[in-house]
């Protein structure tokens, strides 16, 4: 019962959504848009669930004074602070429960939530990703090390694309005669991106879409039920 009804719900809902594509008339079109709205709202609660789980895990670490609990506390405090700011005074042009917080905005130059976003999240996220610029060098060494024809292809393409998209690339091949303009690095980069790279991307997209269609069908007809977890 705990599994059969959810499986039945998935089947019916999936069938309605698919049918609405082929029967674009009421009530199917209406049911479809209603389901899509419900999907947005329920998924929203799923994200809230993930957040509550994060709070639960970190609170437990702090409560039991587990190893490195101080960092969990930092995570919890920053989460609570930004949520309180967002709830009280809103974000961007959205009003919070205390309104737009004109007084505090005049004091710090913008809404507290946006202040934290600009001075906390933005530097943190961009620095975190820029850190990869250093590690990608060692990854490049491993990826580019000439072991086979395939790794050569990868290396050569990456070098051409990097050079072709910087000002150094055109400088390198600017001496080429017009008859060999095809080999001019920016032109070669454009060619690679427009044809062979697009062909591979297309193959990946089409193959993945076939896989997704197959998996979706398996879920709708109930062959794939791992998303429901165990019988507990």
């Amino acid at each position: 019962m705990k599994r059969t009804i959810p499986l039945l719900i998935t089947f019916i809902v999936g069938l309605i959504v698919i049918s609405s594509e082929f029967i674009p008339h009421r009530p199917f079109s209406m049911i479809n848009s209603t389901l899509e709205n419900w999907y947005l709202s329920i998924s929203g609660f799923a994200i809230v669930l993930g957040l509550l789980s994060l709070v639960q895990v970190n609170s437990s670490k702090v409560y039991h004074k587990a190893e490195n609990w101080q960092y969990s506390l930092a995570s919890l405090v920053s989460l609570v602070v930004i949520v309180i700011f967002g709830v009280l005074w809103g974000m961007e042009d959205q009003r919070g429960i205390l309104g737009n917080g004109e007084a505090i905005s005049a004091f710090i130059g913008k809404k507290p939530f946006d202040y934290l976003f600009d001075n906390g999240i933005t530097p943190l996220s961009s620095t975190m990703f820029s850190l990869l610029a250093f590690f990608i060098a060692s990854a490049a060494y491993r990826a580019f090390i000439i072991r086979s024809f395939e790794s050569n292809l990868l290396m050569i393409t990456a070098v051409i694309v990097i050079l072709g998209r910087t000002s150094f690339g055109p400088m390198l091949t600017s001496w080429l005669p017009k008859s060999l303009s095809f080999l001019h690095l920016p032109n070669l980069t454009d060619f690679i991106l427009t044809y062979p790279s697009s062909a591979a991307q297309r193959a990946i997209l089409m193959s993945a879409s076939l896989g997704i269609i197959g998996s979706s069908l398996r879920i709708i007809i109930g062959l794939e039920r791992s998303y429901l977890g165990s019988d507990e």
């Binding site: 959810p6 998935t10 809902v13 999936g14 997704i212 979706s216 069908l217």
Partner: peptide
């Protein structure tokens, strides 16, 4: 599991058509 079933059913229906 009930709301999950609604979310999964809608998501697979939408994604199947969209990807196709």
């Amino acid at each position: 599991k009930y709301p999950l079933a609604v979310v999964i059913g809608t998501a697979v229906g939408i994604s199947m058509l969209r990807y196709m």
